[in-house]
Each structure stands twice: as structure tokens, then as C-alpha cells.
Simulated scan of single mutants.
Amino acid sequence: MKEYVLSVDYSPITGLRYCNESDFSGEDFYHKKLNSWFADAYQNNEQIKIILDGGEDGYGPSFRDEAFGNLVYDFSLDIVKKILIIESPGEELWKEEIEENTFPDWEKRRTKKEAPKQTESHDAWYRLIDNKLERKVWKNE
């Protein structure tokens, strides 16, 4: 299992939900780090652990929702639950909010095909389609 400490492997400072709102946003973290970390774990039939600890200003609710919600949208709630372990030693509430609110809300969005907002052009990223990983720049239609 690979472990990633968000404050070390991404940034000690995190921003808001979208790239057009702040640097180090949830959207940015998802596209620059979390999507490929997760896809790698999926391909290797492994789990990954994301540790929400050590951030200078914590991890705001919009950051957490956008980053982990996109993951559910692209891979499905069932797959995310099998692969992702979240630890939040300093704030257990963050983990609970992600698992109890973000995950089910974004699974509803996924099933309704309500695509996530993109406020910046991103390099190709992974999405699970018919149990196959596909990597491309996905257009919100």
C-alpha cells in the first residue's frame, strides 16, 4: 500500500474548491495528484492511503469535497471504497465528512451524469469506463 501525506506530497497549504478561486485548490489536487495515484493503485490491485495531516491551514470543506468527489465521479463509489483509505489524525471529522457526505453526494452526481465543473484546462486524466481505465481530456457536455 502506498501512503501519501497531503501536506508533503502535494502542498502544506491548500486552497478552495476550484482552480479559478485559489492556488492549490481541490480541483488542482485531484488533477495533478490524486487521480493518477488512484489509477495506479487500481491498475496494481492495491490500496492507497491519503493522510490529511500537517497542513498549515487545514483542509477546507470545499477543497475536500472537490478533490474526493471527483474521485468518486471518475471511478464510482464502490471502487473508491475498496481502494482508498483516508486518515485524518488531527481532525477525524474531515474523514467522516468525506465518507458520509462527499462520497454519497458525488455518487448521485455520477449516476445522474452531472459532470464536475472544470475551471482550468487539465492534462489527460483517468476515468473508469465499463471496468476499463481510459485516460484522456474529458469534456463536460
Rank of each mutant, 00 (worst) to 15 (best):
D130E: 09
K81Q: 11
L34W: 04
N131A: 13
T102H: 06
P61G: 01
L34C: 01
Q43H: 13
N35G: 10
K113E: 12
K49N: 09
I50K: 00
E100R: 14
P89V: 11
Y30T: 12
K49Q: 14
I48Q: 14
E97Q: 09
K33G: 02
W106D: 00
D123F: 11
L71A: 03
G26L: 00
E97C: 08
W37C: 02
Q43P: 01
D123Q: 15
A39H: 12
Q43K: 13
V80N: 02
H122P: 01
E120A: 12
K95H: 05
I79F: 05
Y126E: 12
L128I: 11
D53I: 03
E107V: 11
N35R: 07
A124C: 07
I86N: 06
P104L: 07
P89N: 14
W94E: 07
T119F: 09
R110N: 05
K108F: 03
E96P: 01
S121Y: 15
S121G: 12
W37H: 09
L93M: 05
I86F: 01
R109Q: 05
L77H: 04
F68L: 06
R110M: 05
S76A: 15
E91W: 04
E114M: 13
K108S: 12
S62A: 07
D57W: 13
D130A: 07
G54K: 14
D74R: 07
W106A: 00
R127Y: 10
R127I: 09
F38S: 01
V80F: 03
T111W: 06
G90A: 14
D74H: 11
E92M: 08
D105F: 07
K32D: 15
S62G: 03
L84I: 06
S62C: 02
N44A: 13
E27I: 01
I50D: 01
T119Q: 10
D23L: 11
K82E: 09
I83W: 02
S76T: 08
D78E: 15
K117V: 13
G69R: 00
K108W: 03
T102L: 04
F68K: 02
D105N: 09
I83G: 11
E92C: 04
C19F: 00
L77G: 05
G54F: 12
N45R: 04
